[in-house]
Design a protein around this nucleic acid. Structure first.
Lengths: 393, 393
DNA sequence: GTTATTTAATTCGCATTCCGTTAAAAATAC
DNA sequence: GTATTTTTAACGGAATGCGAATTAAATAAC
């Protein structure tokens, strides 16, 4: 019970960034007395800090000035990582989720043995932690965001394009290697939480995010919580069936996955080289700008498929906002236009106007930051799983 | 706080049907003292009853016999209704959700003016209440389940096959007519809750239900709560796009909707007559059994479409169980077999085995009962919206 | 420069609620 | 009658939250 209120207060402080006790009491509907008690305990535990300056009310501020409270950055450190087929990005963040150090490794881990991938990740985590002038035992937890179908609760990776094997207990593996609690989560879920905390969904507790990367992922936020399937399973949009063709089922991934768009490039060419370095989409963009017919048509096909699938998702979830992220957005107009057009054709009239589409080109660092947020949330989370009653009246 | 515990205790009693205090204390993790206090207050308020007999432990029950507690049926009365294009079914239930009286009206309300439909519903409610030997002012609330896209919070019907108009504030209209709080809800949501309370999902707090009726509906239960979109919007599966054909988008409804399966039957025929009376699917079944080629192929087409769409839904929600209900199930083998086959083709291997398919042929009365459950839940619901912690260890 | 006013935060006292323990009462089996 | 089990009752302790009064810190007014 106190735990609930404590979490609500903490979360309110996080959302506001910097806030006075009175304001907390307003937003949480708790009495000033209770807020005072809880904030005192939070101060005591070193989770928050008091700052005398910074009262931003109208200039003419009579009365006792407010004491602004904010999260104590030093209360915890976590590592977040985005693991993709051709690059890894690590960040160390503080308790606020602010980045202390970044490390990008451009290397293709695609389909290598688990041990090799784990080695690389372990190395990246360690180096990034050192870059932040920290030691590993100062890190409270680690979260790895990777593509594929992942059980969050167990850290079990059912399938992932970066693993040869299916069914890997990756969280266990990495926890043991690092000696730090390690969470494994779908990259789409990570970026979803990043948007909820810092990005284009800060104002919403309900929204849907679609990630268009090598893998097509989905994140659904419902009541401030990630909506997960049975066992905390993440979704894989690429598995959606768009229709039945002559050669069996046509899945979204086969039309809009990265490899479907970029196609099989001859091994020695510049394009293939760019793909290997994770610049495939950027390179494709330049080719599209140069009017490369086959790429343009691939982009249009992909856009149409995505738009249709997106409409179906909106039909099912009816969120107030959908955020689209991922490397495929870099394809530019042909892709985006055909996506929008297919979407507006496919969206049923009965829910027209319910959902707003937002495109966002986040950097890889943001994804890694999202993974860090996943880790932070576990530290934050109230034992009840409530995000707390909405700001209310 | 006490409100939460009170709700949990009440909900535990409801789930168990009949339960002793000790058992409640076991399941809710509350002390026997607290349970005693709460049950005393519930008894006082007349929400529950004590029954001396009925201790079902092993025959050799020494010691003081348990006093079984159960919901007091007389604590409330609600009306639930299923409104379909060619029939209306009303039930009056008690506080337990048990049916006190039923009324079926076989009439085609399809596309009549709102006023006419409202008249018929009003009449049905009143008659059903009288049949239960009650007066309308003894009814605590009414819930109407109808097909279409409906905003639960406001009772605003965005679109419904039974209304000519779009955007009708039907809850308001009916509340005024009846002088009783009236809730309007999607019929699919109603049957979903019915299964959660009484049917094939009693043991689960997470599941998905797909209703294959005139309209194709969806109900998603998540953490014991209906998952609703923005504004409490219900979903309409019929709007799902299966592909892009020559004449634009192909929606599920155009392949698997009732009218798509049964086709346009000549006005005077026996089949058309059966459809008008709501026996369309049953009649179709007899024709299929008689090897009517065109119907069989329609059923197969519909089954395939449903199976594919179902796989997509499972991909997105990954529920432990999916319950399929609705009149289309009555089509029999050709439909069910092709559905199952398309489903297993389309379900991605990465989540194979996660979801169990269950078919259920509920009567219309069950649907109406589900609507009653929607009404009862509002009476029950704790102010916090928690369904309560799971039975736990 | 002192006093009044205003606003923020804390302290204090009160009420509620829950839990644990203990004890008693109730109802039945042996 | 005695033992066993469930239920109720009573007391103390602890935690929490709220309201009212109090203290704190600053500006405005005189």
């Amino acid at each position: 019970m106190r735990a609930i209120n404590r979490f609500n207060v903490l979360d309110t402080i996080r959302r506001a960034g910097s806030i006075a006790r009175i304001e907390i009491s307003d937003r949480t509907q708790l009495s000033t007395t209770t807020v005072s008690a809880i904030t005192a305990s939070l101060l005591d535990d070193g989770l928050i800090l008091a700052r005398t300056e910074g009262d931003l009310r109208e200039a003419a501020a009579r009365g006792r000035p407010r004491v602004m409270l904010e999260l104590n950055p030093d209360a915890a450190r976590v590592v977040g990582a985005k693991i993709a087929a051709n690059r890894m990005v690590f960040v160390v963040t503080d308790f606020r989720g602010e980045v202390l150090s970044t490390l990008t490794l451009a290397l293709r881990v695609d389909r290598q043995p688990i041990g090799v991938i784990a080695d690389l990740i372990e190395d990246g985590v360690r180096r990034c932690v050192v870059d932040a002038n920290l030691a590993l035992d100062e890190i409270d937890s680690v979260c790895l965001g990777l593509p594929g179908v992942i059980e969050h609760r167990t850290g079990h990776v059912r399938t992932s394009p970066i693993f040869r094997e299916a069914g890997v207990d990756f969280a266990k593996e990495m926890s043991e290697r690092l000696g730090v609690t390690t969470i494994v989560e779908s990259d789409a879920h990570a970026i979803t939480l990043a948007h909820h905390w810092f990005g284009k969904a800060r104002d919403l507790d309900d929204m849907v995010l679609v990630s268009l990367e090598q893998t097509l992922g989905l994140g659904v936020l419902h009541g401030g919580q990630l909506f997960r399937g049975a066992g905390g399973l993440s979704h894989n949009l690429g598995d959606l069936v768009l229709g039945i063709g002559p050669q069996g089922t046509v899945r979204l991934a086969s039309l809009a996955g990265e490899s479907a768009i970029l196609g099989d490039q001859p091994g020695g060419g510049r394009f293939a080289e760019a793909i290997r370095l994770g610049r495939g989409m950027a390179h494709a963009k330049t080719l599209i700008d140069a009017e490369d017919i086959s790429l343009i048509s691939a982009a249009i096909r992909a856009g149409e498929a995505c738009g249709t699938a997106l409409a179906n998702i909106v039909t099912l979830f009816a969120p107030p906002r959908v955020i689209l992220v991922g490397s495929s957005l870099a394809l530019g107009q042909p892709f985006l236009d055909s996506l929008r057009e297919a979407y507006s054709l496919a969206i049923p009239p009965s829910i027209k106007g319910v959902t707003e589409l937002v495109f966002d080109q986040s950097t890889d660092e943001t994804w890694a930051q999202g993974a860090a947020v996943v880790a932070l949330r576990e530290l934050y989370e109230s034992p009840w799983g409530t995000t707390g009653p909405a700001p209310a009246l």
